[in-house]
Design a protein around this nucleic acid. Sequence first.
DNA 1: TTTGTCTTACGAAATAATTCGTAGGTTAAA
DNA 2: TTTAACCTACGAATTATTTCGTAAGACAAA
Lengths: 127, 127
Amino acid sequence: MNNDKVKPTASELEILNILWSKGPSTVREIHEVLELNKDAGYTTTLKLMQIMNEKNLLKRDETTKSHVYSANVSKERMQGQMVKGMIDTMFNGSASQLVMQALGNHKANAKELDEIRKYLDAMDKKK
Amino acid sequence: MNNDKVKPTASELEILNILWSKGPSTVREIHEVLELNKDAGYTTTLKLMQIMNEKNLLKRDETTKSHVYSANVSKERMQGQMVKGMIDTMFNGSASQLVMQALGNHKANAKELDEIRKYLDAMDKKK
DNA sequence: TTTGTCTTACGAAATAATTCGTAGGTTAAA
DNA sequence: TTTAACCTACGAATTATTTCGTAAGACAAA
């Protein structure tokens, strides 16, 4: 049951995002959300989700006529994987470089900055 | 001269990384670095760089027999673009969420954390 | 001059990702 | 029971990306 290091394509990520926010859904439900932003046929969405299922990116419940799919990877795990990839390929392995790039270009508001500070303090305390 | 929003593939990114660190180089020079980690023929590297040139990801100087290529987009700009993409697709548009994910999983050392704190303070002062 | 080495250009094969048409099954309403 | 509206599976077309072979020119050493 190989499940590691599976790197979703951009289209697959769109589907995962919908599943993460809506929870378990049928192809039809996912397709309706996708249709809002792009146009593609229903069977395209179906096929994509079937492939994602084979790759173990999704799992599905076949007990009902319309199969119900859900993400088989947590959003957090995927975020971690992608952030790591980014740090490795674009920031010479330095997390703090990425952090500063992120803060520099996308102004977080005062509340967010405060959250980050608290986070930093908590990390200090921990070790 | 369309140059915006060009999203490099993984292979293209490898080449850009080498150019960013080595500076202007010939295909041969880039190819030798690439060969250290993967194997691919010389003309593969050549073709890739030619395509990148067409896409304006690279520019080239043809005055010498061996053309000299250089990155036509700065590393910083590309970092910004990619971080933005990541924030939009995986972190609901919140930079600070990405920051915390990055800090949580990749322990920066004390010195780095300090840098970040200074960075935060500087941002506060600014506005 | 001839040969060998290196270069670019370019067409096209190989591989990967996306898209879609069609066949066949289930179900519910007419 | 017939029809209409769904659903899944699946092969195959389309498009994108990566890879490579081959041709043709430049150049230097023999």
